[in-house]
């Protein structure tokens, strides 16, 4: 299909989509007047039922915990799929039909990481790890949780890389251990749900003590536990993902350098 034909087809499809949009939006209640009863029911009972003051976390890890298990496994599958896609490629690089432009890259020096970036990144590593950890363990209290905390925690590892310490980053990134951590996070979430079933309760029912003070770190039972497990899984998944992509740059760099013997990307 030629680009012009493609644009015409797109124009027709968009006209239809625009009509559907206009129709759907005409039926929506005005901005700020949401009539959905589900959220209001949860808002009325959530704090009393779960002792979690972060109602979004309560929705994520309790009321709609089953949804979140699904989301969790999308993340897990994406990370796993990525390492599969890139791993198969490694075997194929030798017989790749296209050679990178070696000549253009020859004779270029790798720029050194500036000391300002090194110092700033290394100074930020510790606080970032602490903030990530804090976010992952405070889902029941405030707008935080495993998803946010996990990403911030992974950022701490990226900062080590950004500081130019790519060898340290490799040591901090034992792939086998990260794989185990990711699987434990994802599997642990599902297992907490099954533990409730084992006691004759519904899947993902909050069977742990809820604590006395709403919003305390020790409150909300399984909501806090699941959030922590999600944090572990997300952090491991993102370190794996970024590590895989960085390996790719090393692979290309190695080949443009004429297959140097550093053996890093093997």
């Amino acid at each position: 299909m030629r680009p012009r034909q493609r644009l015409w087809l797109f124009a027709i499809a968009v006209a239809g989509l625009a009509a559907c949009y206009a129709w759907a939006f005409a039926g929506l209640p005005g901005f700020g007047r949401y009539p959905g009863p589900y959220g209001q029911v949860i808002l009325k009972d959530a704090v009393a039922q779960t002792n979690a003051t972060g109602v979004v976390s309560a929705v994520n890890f309790y009321y709609r915990g089953f949804d979140t298990v699904g989301e969790e496994f999308i993340l897990f599958t994406a990370a796993a799929g990525m390492s599969v896609v890139l791993r198969r490629l490694r075997g194929e690089t030798e017989q790749s039909p296209v050679q990178p432009p070696v000549e253009a890259a020859r004779g270029r020096d790798l720029p050194q990481t500036s000391s300002a970036i090194r110092v700033a990144a290394l100074l930020l590593t510790g606080p970032t790890a602490v903030i990530g950890w804090w976010l992952a363990t405070h889902a029941q209290t405030n707008p935080s949780g495993g998803f946010q905390g996990g990403v911030v925690l992974a950022t701490a590892f990226m900062l080590v890389y950004l500081a130019g310490e790519s060898l340290t980053f490799r040591r901090l990134r034992p792939v086998a251990l990260l794989d185990v951590a990711e699987a434990m996070g994802a599997g642990g979430f599902a297992a907490v749900g099954l533990a409730a079933i084992a006691q004759g309760l519904p899947y993902l029912y909050d069977f742990l003590p809820l604590g006395k003070v709403p919003g305390a770190v020790t409150s909300s039972g399984t909501i806090a536990l699941i959030s922590f497990l999600v944090g572990i899984e997300v952090a491991a998944a993102f370190v794996l993902i970024v590590g895989e992509l960085l390996d790719q740059t090393l692979l290309v760099g190695q080949r443009t350098a004429g297959g140097g013997p550093s053996g890093e990307a093997g």
Binding site: Y34, G36, Y38, G39, Q40, I42, L43, A46, V55, V56, S57, A58, V59, N60, R64, D67, T68, E71, I74, L75, A78, A79, G81, M82, V85, L86, G145, F147, Q148, G150, V151, V234, A237, F238, I241, V242, E244, L245, Q248
Partner: peptide, 24 residues
């Protein structure tokens, strides 16, 4: 409404991972 916020929250992270898969 907390339900839509929970939906958006999980999706942000999942989207980032799926994007990485597409990039690879």
């Amino acid at each position: 409404d907390p339900v839509v916020q929970a939906l958006a929250l999980t999706d942000v992270v999942v989207e980032a991972a799926v994007t990485a898969l597409l990039m690879s």
